[in-house]
Computed example of a mutant assay.
Amino acid sequence: MDGNLLRDEIVAAIRAEIDSLQNPEVCLATVLVGSDKPSQIYVRNKHRKAQEAGMVSRHVELGEDATQDEVEEAVGDLAADPSVHGILVQLPVPVGIDAEAVLDLIPPEKDVDGLTERSMGRLVRGRLGHVPCTPLGVMELLERYGIETSGKRAVVIGRSTLVGLPQVLLLGRKGCDATVTLAHSRTADLAGLCREADIIIAAAGMARLVTADFVSPGAAVVDVGISRTEAGIVGDVDFDSVQDIAGAITPMPGGTGPMTIGCLLKNTLAAARMMGSIAP
């Protein structure tokens, strides 16, 4: 399941839609605090793809020594600006900054990363809002590559509010109709549980946790976890041992990571609609 390919299809579709609307200014704004190198790369990639999609992008960068008040002021200004449709605060923020207090300043219609408690509440309640980008990207991959979910058994490994919990909600909601089990590092006989699954979503952040012993023949395996090792970036799935058993599998990198950016842009376009800046 090629995330790069699908992301580029999404970007092209957004560009075509914006062009058809006579190029309204759909604006994604990012806030980066500190000098974390991976975060700088992630933000650059998001802006590059936003521009390819025909969007306007704004960036606010604050130093490692930025205060809580300065960060909150930057986010508050973007929240109050009607020309900004989506706001993304790149995480992690430096030690000493209360990330939750910063995220709370983002209005739900501009929370295109789907990280705030109000966005999560809307997802739980089935109300209009933004779904976190990585779980949404997983759903897009499953749909694009024809992975059936209705009546299927899915195991989500990992219980973070960023991926695991919203992923369970998305897989189990009406229209998707999977029977979902939430697992984690303390789940008894995790490998045995996963062998019963038609779909495995690995999002525990534990390098090469999912081996061939976890996977039944033909199962779909989606790798969300990222670990940095001496050998480079690896996922939660031992790709080499699993790929010959799985019916479908995402690579790492090149699977869910690109889809996170694609879904961020989809959410930004949806945000512009929610705000009435473009036609519904």
Rank of each mutant, 00 (worst) to 15 (best):
3 G>F: 00
3 G>D: 00
4 N>T: 14
5 L>I: 11
8 D>R: 15
9 E>Q: 15
13 A>M: 02
14 I>E: 09
21 L>I: 04
27 C>A: 14
32 L>S: 11
34 G>V: 07
38 P>G: 04
41 I>R: 07
52 E>G: 09
54 G>S: 07
56 V>E: 13
58 R>F: 07
68 Q>D: 07
69 D>R: 12
70 E>R: 13
78 L>M: 09
82 P>E: 15
86 G>P: 01
86 G>Q: 10
88 L>N: 06
95 V>K: 15
95 V>C: 10
96 G>H: 04
103 L>K: 02
104 D>S: 13
109 E>S: 13
111 D>L: 00
112 V>G: 05
119 S>Q: 03
122 R>K: 14
125 R>D: 13
125 R>A: 15
126 G>W: 01
135 P>S: 09
135 P>N: 09
148 E>V: 13
149 T>F: 02
151 G>Y: 05
152 K>Y: 04
153 R>S: 12
161 T>F: 14
164 G>C: 03
168 V>M: 11
174 K>V: 12
175 G>C: 07
177 D>I: 08
178 A>T: 09
182 L>K: 03
185 S>G: 09
191 A>P: 05
192 G>H: 02
203 A>E: 06
214 F>P: 00
214 F>R: 02
219 A>I: 02
226 I>L: 09
231 A>C: 01
246 A>T: 05
247 G>M: 09
247 G>L: 05
247 G>E: 10
251 P>T: 15
256 T>Y: 04
257 G>V: 03
258 P>M: 06
262 G>Y: 04
263 C>E: 11
268 T>A: 10
273 R>A: 13
274 M>F: 15
274 M>W: 10
277 S>E: 12
